[in-house]
Amino acid sequence: MDHWLALSLLALVFWGITGNTQRLATNHVSAQFSFLGFAAAFVPVAFLIAALVPIDGPVSAEVLILGVAGGVLNAFGALTSFAAFEAGAKSSVAVPIMYLYPLITSLLAHTILGEQIRTEHWAGICLAPVAAWLLASD
């Protein structure tokens, strides 16, 4: 198995389990409290990485902006998803719309970075929100 595929599947598994633990957490506390605990857990991991992994040279302004923007975009996305459901969104409608995000990424990567997307990959990209819709069915 290619390294990228193994790593992607690893991310898929870790993130998948967070779907369970997050749901269990919000059985006990508010989504806001849960988010704060979630974010707090990132801090020791970051310190651990900084302590154990050698970091080459100074970080450029470009990397700094891109890295920080990642945390902002991802976490605000989580917050707007909470807000959507609290505003009355039905998961059967909202989840497939939210899961169109890979399509946005792929279109940007194709248009701006010139990534070539093969037909079978397009098929997979388009199947993903449909699968998410079915998986989110109550």
Binding site: A11, L12, G16, T105, A109, I117, H121, A128, A131, A136
Partner: peptide, 14 residues
């Protein structure tokens, strides 16, 4: 990104 992001978005499967 056009492959990794769609693939990892399938985490609800797990």
């Amino acid at each position: 990104a056009s492959v990794v992001v769609p693939l990892t978005s399938l985490s609800p499967l797990v």
